[in-house]
Design a protein around this nucleic acid. Structure first.
Lengths: 356, 356
DNA sequence: CTGTTAGCGCATTCAT
DNA sequence: ATGAATGCGCTAACAG
């Protein structure tokens, strides 16, 4: 055995030689699904030989034959958004324990990049997809689903609920938020809504309208402004709009935490304080949002659990393509320092510093 | 063509048939490296046929032949640590534009998980590794490097600098931090150090000692406490230790932002305010750390650039295994609200809430 | 129960 | 410049 071995790894054939059996037998002996087909004694001999040589099956060669890669593609808008890392860990957790490797791709909410990513991954023969990038009018995804590759949606769903998905009840979550500020005495509550082409943006908006009604608030006093993206900048723009026409507001319910952060920015600009001058509620309860100034009251979604459930669901779909259900987890409200009773429920009173 | 096509994608043979050439010719025509070998006219005919059929080369089959997978493995301790997502984006940015797909794995700083991850990825025939998980006494990594698979380190390096790496000058960064508080008038400065089995933890510690000397501070007045992990909890424990023996401190330089957050926790517990009672400096300048209460002064490391440089460096190593240099980027200091002049440089006194 | 054979899709010799 | 043949490492279908 000269030592110049560059990369010539040990193959099934080497094991066969050592165990004095046919390569086919090695394959059967080493594959859990087919081990039963082979004599226990030979199986063990093969296993020993494999161990001795440090044999590692080559998943690439296997995939060529079986048309399975044991990889799954995961699409997120932007891994830099703190919402996603915990979800990804949940996904990886479940998938890796079943032998799957995950390929993560950022799409930046660009449908062209999304298409390209799906294409690349399809070329790599991923066995399935999990995507957090769904938009309501999505056509691409449905197309892929039809092609036979399982797709599971996380966080965001489709209009028609035609694909398997894991998420929280966005309307219920928003209701929690509105009820909270409403019960604190707020009557003039604005909504900084998310992009309406996402289920999260849309459902939370609808949830806001529902909540305004069910809390007996005056619709006129509860304006809505739509952000074009779930970003801090988007939230700031939308929030500024809310104040543009000289409206009186004592609370804002934002469609996610990043939008709420944008609201914080606008408050700071206008010399208003939170929660004294304005209460703010976010959605998602992303990591570190509890460390902000002030700590953000937010609707918590169990991020890691969502990811784990998505992983499990994809596993189901992989095993039985007809599976594919929807899983809804419960959002809960986490009250922190960004919400308080309005200074004066009927009218902003006294020392009010701030017009602009 | 009956429609029951399940997953039978179009192969090089289908293209050959349509273009009326041999499969081998298709392979040559479609591969940029060998296109020159084929008549321009036929090449075009092949390209057309491929386009018409929507042919996608199968990287799995290709890899089986070429022993390259065009995938690279990326190891991070925990994607949930805000430091890593930007780095990962930088890596993905460079690698994907060269046709590589990245496999990301969390190791939780567990060397067993790390070994397993490397093994899994090796089995998948990744072409190279980028890892942010290096520990100084690392043996595994060197072993892999020897096996011929290029490895690039990010953020953390090895003791001996034997592997290609991209990072910042940790000692210089810490010097910036200490000089800053020192110039504000602090003389009793503690260091919450990171794990000493990581280069970042160790170098920043050494940098602190250097800085204490070069700023003319009294070593006795500048205690160090070591955290066992770069986490908030670790930082809290270490910070508490710093105060345990009734020490007087007016500033703390932490070895990273998460540790600094832990210091914040201890301050809150002890009823101390930052920066009035104690200044705190972090390291890394992770996302959202500027939104904390108070905004953290931190040594900024260009995270995304580091990732991009690591991607480029791996590409170099892939092209020329003998490459492998070290790349050092400059850290800079970002001053925010967590640092201010001590209330009284000589002794914590009266009402003075801050000059600065 | 095990050996044999064939072929997954492609790149790469060698001929021509 | 192109066709033909071979094999990467593995699994699956069929014999025996």
């Amino acid at each position: 055995m000269h030592n110049g071995r560059v990369r010539h790894s040990v193959t099934i054939r080497d094991v066969a030689r050592l165990a004095k059996v046919h390569p086919g037998t090695v394959s059967r002996a080493l594959n859990p699904d087919t081990r039963a087909l082979v004599n226990a004694a030979t199986a063990e001999r093969v296993a020993d030989a494999a161990a001795q040589l440090g044999y590692q099956p080559n998943p690439i060669a296997r995939g060529l034959k079986t048309n399975r890669s044991f990889t799954v593609g995961v699409l997120v808008p932007d891994i830099t958004n703190p919402l996603f890392p915990p979800i990804l860990r949940g996904i990886e957790d479940r998938l890796s324990r079943s032998g799957y490797t995950t390929l993560i791709v950022n799409t930046d909410n660009d449908s062209e990049r999304e298409r390209a990513a799906l294409e690349t991954m399809r070329a790599r023969h991923v066995d399935g997809f999990i995507t957090a990038t769904a938009r309501l009018e999505e056509r691409v995804l449905s197309g892929f689903a039809l092609s036979g590759t399982p797709i599971v949606l996380v966080n965001r769903g489709l209009e028609d609920g035609s694909l398997p998905m894991v998420g929280v009840d966005d309307r219920a979550g928003t209701l929690l938020a509105v009820e909270h500020v409403s019960s604190l005495g707020h009557r003039q509550i604005g909504h900084v809504a998310g992009p309406q082409d996402t289920s999260t943006g849309h459902q939370r908006y609808l949830g806001f309208l529902d909540a305004v009604a069910s809390c007996g608030l005056d619709v006129e006093a509860c304006p809505v402004s739509f952000a074009s993206a779930f970003t801090e900048a988007g939230g700031a723009r939308a929030c500024a709009e809310l104040f543009a026409d000289g409206r009186e507001l004592t609370a804002i319910v934002a469609a996610n935490d990043l939008l709420a952060l944008g609201c914080y920015d606008v408050l700071a600009q206008r010399g208003m304080r939170c929660p004294e001058d304005l209460s703010v509620v976010g959605f998602n309860d992303i990591p570190f949002i509890d460390r902000l100034r002030p700590p953000l009251t937010s609707v918590r979604v169990p991020q890691r659990d969502i990811g784990a459930a998505a992983g499990d669901l994809l596993l189901e779909c992989l095993a039985d393509p007809a599976a594919g259900r929807q899983i809804w987890l419960e959002p809960t409200l986490v009250v922190r320092g960004s919400t308080a009773a309005p200074r004066d429920p009927r009218r902003g009173s006294g020392t009010e510093r701030l017009p602009a």
